[in-house]
């Protein structure tokens, strides 16, 4: 193992995206400095079931006080893999989101939509041996934000993946198939590649739905792959 594949920056949003106002004073002006390969740590923190509670992955239950939260019940599931399609097992996946009305349980969120007493809006799990993961949650509502006079975030769930090394550490957001706000959102549209945006859209998977309980959306995650070793690149016998 000799480190990670170089990042393909055509698939990532640039630091400065002027239409997303908050980037204007928070984007570094200097280009990122390439760290010498030998200095990049290849290890990452290890998490286990002892770090988790049994209901951590179930947002329909993990903050329930007197019943289930209001909203469209969904199973959110998928697979975490690297750029070579290899499973990333045992990695910590954390999500947070607004409730069905578009309100976050956060002291800085003052949107007029009410809090749901039965919904906290955060969850976490570990990927299994095949990289698979699943959460039970509800589809969050869109919400307004102070980027312009009339800016609305598409429905989205924030997703954090620890990965198996610092270069794989990722935070992203997933969106929902068919949401007309995706095309209007400057945070999403900062990503220059249309296909890269499309891959942030979770797909309805009716087969995976639980009849008379919840719909299912699939969201697969691809983390940086390992650089092929010199040995692997050499043809046999050389």
């Amino acid at each position: 193992m000799t480190g990670y594949r170089p990042r393909d920056w055509t698939q990532q949003p640039p630091a400065l995206a002027p239409a997303y106002k908050s980037t204007r004073l928070r984007a570094p002006s200097a280009p990122l400095v390439q760290m010498p390969q030998a200095s990049v740590p290849l290890s990452s923190p290890v998490f286990g079931q002892r770090d988790l509670e049994p209901l951590d992955h179930d947002l329909l239950q993990n903050h329930a006080q007197e019943g289930a939260p209001i909203g469209e019940r969904i199973l959110l599931f998928g697979r975490v893999m690297d750029q070579d399609g290899r499973a990333v097992p045992g990695t910590l996946i954390e999500i947070w989101q607004a409730n069905a009305g578009g309100r976050y349980r956060h002291r800085n969120d003052t949107y007029l939509a009410p809090l749901d007493p039965n919904f906290g809006g955060c969850g976490r799990t570990l990927s299994d041996a095949e990289g698979g993961y699943a959460f039970h949650t509800l589809r969050p509502g869109p919400y307004p934000w102070p980027n312009s006079d009339n800016s609305w975030r598409p429905a989205h769930i924030h997703v954090s993946i620890m990965g198996s090394g610092l270069p794989q550490r990722l935070i992203t957001q997933l969106y929902f198939e068919g949401d007309p706000l995706v095309a209007l959102c400057p945070i999403v549209q900062a990503i220059p590649d249309k296909d890269a945006i499309d891959r942030l859209v979770a797909r309805l998977d009716l087969e995976a739905a639980t009849p008379f309980d919840c719909l299912a959306y699939r969201f697969d995650i691809v983390l940086r792959g390992r650089r092929a070793t010199v040995f692997e690149n050499k043809p046999e016998g050389m």
Binding site: Q11, P13, W96, R105, H158, T172, L200, L223
Partner: peptide, 23 residues
Amino acid sequence: TKTPLPETASQTAGPYVHIGLAP
């Protein structure tokens, strides 16, 4: 050599990151 899969794009953690990661 197989073409590597494209990496999932990053998005901002936003102002409410604490709910999920640092409550």
